[in-house]
């Protein structure tokens, strides 16, 4: 069956992009192949491992289980867009606490962690583990990932304290 191309428009890492694509193109393919943003990894490709996690309108989703056409009109943030003028606290945390070994799951782990902290700035250890349930680390380096997220949470509350923002404990 000949496929009709569909136009998809979305904002990726602050930039508006438009492409004509086959409807069956997955968001992760769109990001990697159409836009060249290869930071988002394809791990299992069966919705299990979370290496492809990106933020879709601010929410963590597995980009291998979303069609690009479903993200039409949406805002997407990938690992390439996580840092602003300096590293994101989650990136600092992974650096400081050795939150990565081979690094394959790291983009997904960081995006999931950034989402967790956006929802819950002061997670308990149990909440961090539950929040990262959808990410599989093939090196099994979970302990350091949890420490990295704890470090990131501490960095974020320091920042909000020094910037005078209210810190709710």
């Amino acid at each position: 069956m000949p496929e009709v191309l569909t136009t998809v428009t979305m904002t990726v890492n602050g930039q508006r992009v438009a492409r004509s694509i086959e409807p069956r193109v997955l968001l992760v393919h769109f990001l990697r192949e159409e836009l060249g943003l290869t930071g988002t990894h394809v791990g299992c490709d069966t919705s299990q491992c979370g290496a492809c996690t990106v933020l879709l309108d601010g929410e963590a989703v597995k980009a291998c289980t979303v069609l690009a056409v479903q993200a039409h009109g949406a805002t997407v943030t990938t690992i390439e867009g996580l840092e602003g003028t300096r590293l994101h606290p989650v990136q600092e945390g992974f650096w400081a606490k050795h939150g990565l070994q081979c690094g394959f799951c790291t983009p997904g782990a960081m995006m999931t962690a950034a989402y967790l902290l956006s929802q819950n700035p002061h997670p308990s250890e149990a909440e961090i583990r539950e929040g990262l349930d959808g990410v599989v680390c093939r090196c099994t380096g979970y302990e350091t990932i949890v420490r990295a997220v704890q470090h990131a949470a501490a960095l974020m509350s320091e920042v909000s304290e020094t910037s005078g923002a209210e810190d709710v404990d």
Binding site: G50, A60, V61, K62, T65, Y115, L116, G131, G134
Partner: peptide, 9 residues
């Protein structure tokens, strides 16, 4: 259900 990402979709 599932995990955080699954529940978001």
């Amino acid at each position: 259900i599932g995990d955080v990402q699954v529940r978001n979709r």
